[in-house]
Design a protein around this nucleic acid. Structure first.
Length: 608
RNA sequence: CGGGGCGUAGCGCAGUUGGUAGCGCGCCUGCUUUGGGUGCAGGAUGUCGUCGGUUCAAAUCCGGCCGCCCCGACCA
């Protein structure tokens, strides 16, 4: 029975006539079996030229996904089943964690965004439009405003708190450049949750609760992932973790300690502060050296015969328009996120060449801290150097033997550099950083009162005083999980789905549709597997075996049962895991039990 | 938004010097084959992105616009 027939029969029997599939427990729990001959699975031998990354190519080739416009996709039956399987896991775990599901509007009045202040700050990613009366609206890229508006109207007392609400919604972010299919689309499906508390302690308790729920969710999805410390970015707040699916091709760089469990986005990874290197004798006085035309670290080190870590880079930034200097060692990069946080500015950009020349009174490439009359932010490593080489703020001149605090006064010493592979772990004593790449599929934030205070989302506390609620918010990219899962699980022939989120758990191939015995066995297995609760995709097409094998590999169900003439004559069928090369011959009477065993063992993903 | 590239049949692509469009895959029909995208024969399918210009004549030359992809900037 196909999914559509199944649904029809529910309706015909008078069950929940007007309920959607999503709210019918039977339909949600079992997506059921399908026959390929009756299903829209338009596989392609060649992928459209526009698809480049594996997940995008394979989802298009496998008949999961079609593009409607840049970054906007239609999900075909296979693709939608994946989304439903992921959503189900997310929903179950959110419910288990005590969150309540709601469904908020995708279209949001602009005035709510004006109230939170994000109307002016969110930028062009926010898709805005007017209704017929000329009123401003946006399509929600996230829903803090809506949820806060809801809660501030209906939650007044500490007695009603804490409260965690979530939804699974289509979001729209008008990305500057949509790319890589579902990985960075403009329209995408997201689970977003928001929690409301009477105190920071309680909000932090929920943060941990959600962190654990997320760990369960990604484990159940069968993904290799890591939770890493993250930048809180524009959403604000003071604590955040990203959940990263580990892949070779991920957009994000992650540094993780090889000894302890510290891991962070490279944008966030702390650099251990280093103690000043004790030097025997104090450095000699500052000395000017001629370095004609030597601007870059490479040129200067080659010319003076010293090492990059003996040099200091002086970077001139404009922080909300005001010039500041940031000093890092010559072999390091500055980390804008860290600088921005210490400065507390909203905009931080490297100064243009012309501005640098005005500020340093020298051509670009000869900036240095000595004599500079703007705030100077000095990385720990620079302060720890016994002495160093830097620009002299004059054309074709550098300074040697410069010592921090002796020859110039840093405004502040701190962690301003980008952490790097091999760095000592900032948390434990023995570890060093190793690198991964990842795809961010979830993030948890401790928000505090960033939204509740300006939007007056207050409650009456036990002391009779009105206070802003303390909030957290927690997102999961449902459609991005599908893409990340493929990035992590594919080979040259196609997708290799983990059982928990595979559109079907088993592909059943009937090799000779014209053969009565083969057909009888295949039909019987189809019925029995379905009865046993296995999601089975039955390839009953009158196609050559090669076509069926190729399609089965491409669309990537975790198990494949092959019913062929030779095998049936011997009373066996073949069982193959998509991930492994071995082909197993199994007696026809045993195959259902064997497959059910394997599938059931894997349904819980890594939680098994 | 900066740099680069592309737009011709459902998909992948070719189209020379300007002369009114072709190949492979897919699709339809018949036969054939039947354990890794069979073979043969026949067939259908185009606003050559769009608007304008040059020309007797434009997929081809020129200009505007639109769309798409890649790199960068950007990104709860």
């Amino acid at each position: 029975m196909s999914g559509a027939e199944q649904k029809k029969s529910h309706n015909a029997s008078g069950l929940a006539r007007r309920t959607s599939a999503a709210s019918c427990p039977a339909c949600v729990m079992k997506l059921g079996a399908m026959r390929i001959s009756k299903t829209l699975i338009p596989t392609l031998k060649e992928a459209p030229a526009e698809a480049e990354v594996p997940s995008h190519i394979l989802m298009v080739r496998g008949g999961y996904l079609r593009k409607l416009a840049a970054g906007i996709y239609s999900f075909l039956p296979l693709g939608w089943r994946v989304v439903q399987k992921i959503s189900r896991i997310v929903r179950e775990e959110m419910n288990r964690a005590g969150a309540q599901e709601v469904f908020l509007p995708a279209v949001i009045p602009g005035e709510l965004w004006q109230e939170s202040g994000r109307w002016d700050h969110y930028g062009d990613q926010l898709l805005r439009f007017k209704d017929r009366k000329g009123a401003d609206f946006v399509i929600g890229p996230t829903h803090e405003e809506v949820i806060v508006d809801l809660v501030r109207h209906d939650v007044r007392s500490y007695r009603q708190l804490p409260l965690t609400l979530f939804q699974i919604q289509t979001k729209f972010r008008d990305e500057l450049r949509a790319r890589a299919g579902l990985m960075r689309g403009r329209e995408f499906i997201m689970k977003d949750a928001y929690s409301f508390h009477t105190s920071e302690e309680d909000a932090l308790r929920e943060y941990k609760n959600m962190y654990e729920a997320y760990t369960r969710i990604f484990t159940r999805c069968g993904l290799a992932f890591r939770a890493v410390e993250a930048d809180t970015g524009a959403i604000g707040g003071s604590q955040s973790h990203e959940f990263q699916v580990l892949t070779e091709t991920g957009e994000d760089a992650i540094l993780a300690c090889d000894k302890c469990d510290y891991a962070a986005n490279i944008e966030e990874a702390k650099a251990r502060s280093v103690a000043a290197t004790p030097s025997g004798a104090p450095a000699p006085a500052v000395e000017k050296v001629a370095t004609p035309g030597k601007r870059t670290i490479e040129e200067v080190t080659a010319f003076l015969g010293c090492q990059p870590h003996e040099l200091v880079k002086t970077l001139i930034y404009l922080a909300d328009g005001k010039p500041v200097a940031v000093l890092v060692r010559g072999d390091r990069s500055a980390n804008d996120v860290k600088v921005k946080r210490v400065l507390g500015c909203t905009e931080l950009v490297l100064a243009a060449d012309k501005a640098v020349e005005e500020i340093t009174t020298a051509p670009v490439g000869f900036a240095g801290p000595v004599g500079l009359r703007i705030p100077i932010y000095c990385d720990h490593e620079v302060c720890a150097l016994p002495s160093f080489v830097c620009g002299a703020n004059a054309a074709d001149l550098h300074l040697r033997n410069v010592v921090s605090k002796r020859d110039f006064s840093p405004t502040q010493c701190g962690d301003f550099r980008q952490a790097a592979l091999g760095d000592a772990c900032p948390r434990c004593q023995h570890g060093h950083f190793t690198g991964y790449r990842g795809i961010e599929v979830g993030q948890v934030f401790f928000l505090g009162t960033k939204y509740s205070a300006p939007m007056k989302c207050n409650f009456l506390d036990t002391d009779g005083k009105e206070k802003p609620m303390v909030m957290g918010c927690y997102g999961i990219g449902v459609t991005r999980i599908a893409a990340a899962a493929i990035e992590q699980n594919h080979d040259a022939d196609g997708i290799i789905w983990p059982v928990p989120i595979a559109p079907f758990e088993v592909s059943l191939l009937s090799l000779q549709v014209g053969d009565a015995q083969v057909t009888a066995v295949a039909e019987r297995l189809h019925d029995e597997l379905q009865k046993a609760g296995v999601d089975v995709l039955f390839d009953d097409r009158d196609e050559r075996p090669g076509v069926k094998f190729k399609d089965a590999d491409l669309i990537g169900m975790p198990y494949r049962i092959t019913v062929g003439k030779k095998g049936v004559a011997e009373g066996v069928v073949e069982l193959k895991a998509r991930r492994a090369p071995e082909v197993l011959k199994v007696k026809i009477e045993d195959i259902v039990r064997v497959v059910v065993d394997k599938v059931e063992r894997e349904r819980a993903g890594g939680l098994a």
